[in-house]
Design a protein around this nucleic acid. Structure first.
Length: 358
DNA sequence: AATCCGGGGCG
DNA sequence: CGCCCAGGATT
């Protein structure tokens, strides 16, 4: 079969990008590798809309990589709370310290790839956007655009090497090679605004004439993906202990694993089998307290399982000592990951804690 | 290569 | 309710 005519032209895409590129906060300032790197880490599996306000807030608190490296983990965790994938925050902190120790960000893919939390994608993205290296980061947008333009019918993730080679081939064309940062961001924007997963707007696409997927009519079906397994349901029981001032007992979770390093409301492990009251009470932070079950359940979806949590509440008996940290409900809402905030909302609905200032 | 790891928005 | 999102680390 003959290739489509004309072939995808980097110049056409760059001309489109010059007119239609998204106005994103990390594109406004100069190419500070710290800001670019921070945006790329936040954008891992996270939408632009969710990242933009958090990116501004993070930089207001940690304006430089040195400031981030010098900050205590507790402050970084609090600033990241609610963004998800908390290993990113741990690696971000460690990466900042490594960068300060070596005197600045590496300006090559290999150098960046060696840092914590920087994989093949982020290394290529920072190298291209911050340092002008002619490399294409393969993200979900680039995978989709490339699979469609080249009509790659092989399913992900097996097709990834082919897609990467095709996209890198476009970067080798003259106009792209001279504007690597713009070219990769043009691919991002094309995938985010026109070559979208469902109902792509092919009539608006600068590459429509050369798109093999559009010509053959299969573009909306690409890229093909392997089916995903079903998510099991897990259950847990949690314990909300209030002191006489209305503050709540929280404990920092182990540094790795699910919600690692983040604050949490004490509770049982999460498992598929349910918990009897007696069994759950063995995990209570304080056995002798006026525990009462609150009505309802808190539900939360993780990537690989669904979670339902029951909640028991009690007040701290006078003179009792418990290990953990005491936070006001407002401070807890600020510092807790989403799953734990669901428990807080359940308690507020039951009138078990002071309602937030909202 | 397969698994684990959050949270939000959209059709 | 399922899918997708500027993925990385671990095994």
């Amino acid at each position: 079969m003959l290739p489509p005519d004309p072939l995808p032209s980097a110049g056409d895409l760059l001309a489109w990008y010059d007119r239609h590129r998204r106005a994103l906060p990390w594109r406004e300032a100069a190419r500070d590798p710290y800001r670019i790197w921070l945006s790329e880490v936040m954008l891992q599996q996270t939408t632009v809309a969710a990242v933009a306000p958090r990116w501004r807030r993070f930089l207001a608190r940690f304006p430089t990589v040195a400031a981030l490296a010098a900050a205590p983990w507790e402050a970084v965790a609090e600033e990241w709370a609610g963004l998800g994938y908390y290993a990113r925050a741990r690696n971000l902190h460690a990466c900042a310290q490594a960068v300060v120790a070596r005197g600045g960000f590496p300006d090559t893919v290999e150098g960046l790839r060696a840092l914590p939390g920087i994989g093949a994608y982020t290394a290529a993205a920072v190298a291209a956007i911050a340092f002008g290296r002619p490399v294409v980061p393969l993200d979900g947008n680039v995978e989709r655009v490339t699979a469609r333009v080249a009509a790659v019918e092989e399913a992900l993730p097996g097709a990834r090497p082919r897609l990467a080679a095709l996209a890198q081939g476009w970067m080798a064309q003259a106009p792209a090679r001279e504007r690597p940062a713009d070219f990769v961001q043009a691919l991002f924007d094309l995938g985010a605004t026109i070559c979208v997963p469902r109902s792509p707007a092919c009539v608006l696409c600068p590459w429509q004439a050369g798109c093999a997927g559009r010509i053959s009519g299969i573009a909306p079906l690409l890229p093909r993906k392997a089916p995903k397994p079903a998510r099991p349901l897990k259950r847990g029981v949690h314990f909300l202990l209030s002191d006489s001032a209305g503050r709540l007992l929280l404990r920092r979770r182990p540094p790795s694993g699910l919600l690692g390093g983040m604050l949490g409301i004490p509770g049982t492990p999460w498992r598929e089998e349910g918990w009897s009251t007696e069994e759950a009470m063995a995990h209570a932070p304080l056995a002798s307290a006026n525990w009462r079950a609150l009505p309802g359940e808190a539900k939360h979806g993780f990537t690989h399982f669904e979670l339902r949590m029951a909640l028991l509440a009690a007040t701290l008996p006078p003179g009792a000592a418990v290990e953990g940290e005491w936070l006001t409900p407002a401070a807890a809402a600020q510092a807790l990951p989403g799953a734990m905030q669901r428990l807080l909302a359940l308690a507020e609905a039951a009138g078990a804690v002071a309602s937030d200032t909202a």
